[in-house]
Amino acid sequence: MRQFRNMTYPYIAWISAMIVAPLLLILLYAFTTKGNDVTTIRFTLENFTKFFSDPIYTDVLKRSLVVAVITTIICILIGYPSAYIIARAEGKTKVMLLLLITIPMWINMLVRTYAWIGILQDDGIINTILGWFGMEPIKLLYTNFAVILGMVYNFVPFMILQIYTSLEKMDKSLLEAASDLGANKIESFIRVTLPLSLPGVISGITLVFLPSVSSFVIPKLLGGGQYVLIGNVIETQFLTSGNWNFGSAISLIMAIIIMLSMYITKKIDKNDPSRGGATL
């Protein structure tokens, strides 16, 4: 037992230095501001008051939440059918489909996002193809569409893999039992497959919504600085304005929102009746 405890000390030290200490610093900066003397600080709530009293920041927060919700919904609409097809495939076909989903994830997200700039720009691939048919070029880059497209492209694999895992672990004999009881394919899907796959859907929602609401690289590259989300505001406060106190306050607000969303999804997952088995 003592040897086991000794093995945990490096892990505890790493967690303390890399996670706990930065979080405590953010907490300290969020509730403090510089006093009249540069060397002194004072505790205050004005960083939070500034955020909620300024409609610019609250509008950015609302926009970020809306974009994250839209991205999550699109990922579900794309991810569930894709995961279902992969789960029903067999042999080499299944392996190939899984590779098509996972291989892009081996490439850095920044590189993948940069690739979309070449595709969506005015003289990019899409507008070039439209020109072959005599159509006028469409403004695609630096738009809401480009930002949401970039987020869906980068985050939809997480949704697909989570749903696929739930479908793959499902007891196939339940579908046979549903068929024996007279259920057709649609009824079997609604009453057996869908309920048993909901934990994967909820996990996918968590993995898509959380990075979407706090993303700053994708809006910066595909939005061209004209489409600002809350992640961009935090980045600006830390790296450009140098206002670490206000940036920490916004980060703390986002951390609370993220923890609340995680709590809600966990609560839904715990209360999901399908966890006790499907009802026919």
Results as ranks from 00 to 15, higher is better:
P199A: 00
K220Q: 12
L207C: 12
L77N: 06
A183M: 10
I126Y: 01
S241P: 00
L141R: 00
F246Y: 13
V20P: 00
I107M: 10
I258V: 11
A68W: 08
I70T: 09
I230A: 12
T32C: 12
R5E: 09
T33L: 07
Y263P: 03
T193S: 09
S197M: 14
L98V: 02
V60N: 01
V228S: 04
T279W: 11
I70V: 15
M109E: 13
S64H: 08
P10Q: 06
R42C: 01
L252N: 05
I86C: 06
M159P: 00
I138A: 03
P273C: 13
D59Y: 00
S82V: 10
I257P: 01
D123E: 12
I74D: 01
V192P: 13
I202G: 09
Y164H: 13
P157G: 04
I257G: 05
S179H: 08
D180C: 10
L280K: 03
I250P: 09
S53H: 02
L252I: 12
E46F: 00
F145W: 05
G204P: 14
L207D: 11
V111I: 15
L221M: 12
P195C: 12
P157I: 02
I250G: 09
I202L: 15
Y227A: 00
T44M: 06
S241F: 11
N245V: 03
M262W: 04
L167D: 08
K34W: 14
P137M: 05
G204R: 10
T58M: 13
P55V: 00
L140C: 10
Y9H: 02
P219N: 14
T8Y: 03
I253F: 15
N6T: 07
L196K: 09
F43T: 13
A177W: 08
L149V: 04
I160P: 06
T279F: 13
E46I: 01
W132T: 02
K270F: 15
L130S: 13
T32M: 13
L61A: 12
F238C: 08
M96V: 00
L210T: 15
L167F: 14
T44I: 06
Y164G: 04
D272Y: 14
A87P: 01
G242A: 07
Q121W: 01
V152S: 05
V95A: 07
T93A: 10
I70S: 11
I70Q: 11
V67Y: 10
L175W: 01
L99I: 09
N144W: 03
M254C: 09
I73H: 09
F216M: 07
I117M: 14
L167A: 14
F145E: 10
M159D: 01
P22T: 06
M109F: 15
G200D: 07
F133K: 01
N271Y: 10
G134S: 07
T143S: 04
R63M: 03
L24G: 10
S261H: 11
T193I: 07
G277I: 06
K172S: 15
A89C: 06
M96K: 05
S251K: 09
D171M: 09
Y164N: 12
V95Y: 05
I12V: 09
I268S: 10
T40W: 06
L25Y: 15
